[in-house]
């Protein structure tokens, strides 16, 4: 696969995730139990190729977060937590390395890597992101129970949506471009 095709494909993914998030999964219209938000756009960062350079991941995380920030008037809130997620992603990937390392063709895919691997990967990163996001948003630890409730419900919500995206749109067979 040529580099141009890869970059083009990733740009398309970026546009798709941002577009769907801003136009459809808007936070004020799709809310679970009046508490939980859905951070659909995180799918772009979570499902990037495994060998993406760290610097590129950070820049993409910032670009994604900042675009959402502009749409939601939150300044740099989404950007700050998305950059944190992008920074921690290689660590989590290293932590979860299979016994004989990652294959060249391996991608973050529930069919290829297995349920256990995928769920640990997803829940770790989503949890870190949501905790950072909600406490940063509040700017204090004043209402810990309400905020923890929001974090908990949001983790559930985002994770389920990410799982649905995986099951619907990611190939079951190995080695195909998704």
């Amino acid at each position: 696969m040529s580099i141009v095709a890869t970059i083009g494909g990733q740009l398309l993914r970026f546009a798709l995730y941002v577009g769907l998030y801003v136009l459809l999964f808007d936070n004020s219209s799709v809310v679970l139990f009046n508490l939980g938000w859905n951070f659909f756009y995180l799918g772009f960062l979570l499902f990037l190729p495994i060998n993406t350079p760290i610097a590129l991941q950070l820049l993409l995380g910032f670009a994604m977060g900042f675009t959402v920030d502009i749409a939601h008037d939150t300044g740099g809130l989404h950007a700050a937590s998305a950059v944190l997620l992008a920074y921690l992603r290689p660590w989590v990937l290293r932590l979860l390395t299979p016994r004989d390392g990652y294959d060249a063709q391996d991608t973050v895919n529930v069919h290829q890597m297995g349920w256990q691997w995928f769920l640990v990967y997803l829940s770790l990163l989503v949890t870190v992101h949501h905790v950072a996001f909600f406490f940063l948003e509040l700017g204090s630890l004043q209402h810990p129970l309400v905020t923890l409730g929001r974090v908990g419900v949001s983790i559930l919500y985002t994770s389920v949506v990410m799982l649905i995206v995986q099951l619907l749109f990611f190939p079951v067979r190995r080695g195909r471009f998704q």
Binding site: I54, A55, L58, L59, G61, F62, G65, F66, D69, D73, T74, G75, G76, L77, A79, A80, V83, L84, Y87, P90, L136
Partner: peptide
């Protein structure tokens, strides 16, 4: 590069967030 870029981007985001 990872650590430095991370810190730089976080500082930029938080600056935008706090002055929002």
């Amino acid at each position: 590069q990872g650590v430095m870029l991370f810190v730089l981007l976080e500082v930029v985001s938080l600056y935008f967030f706090l002055t929002n």
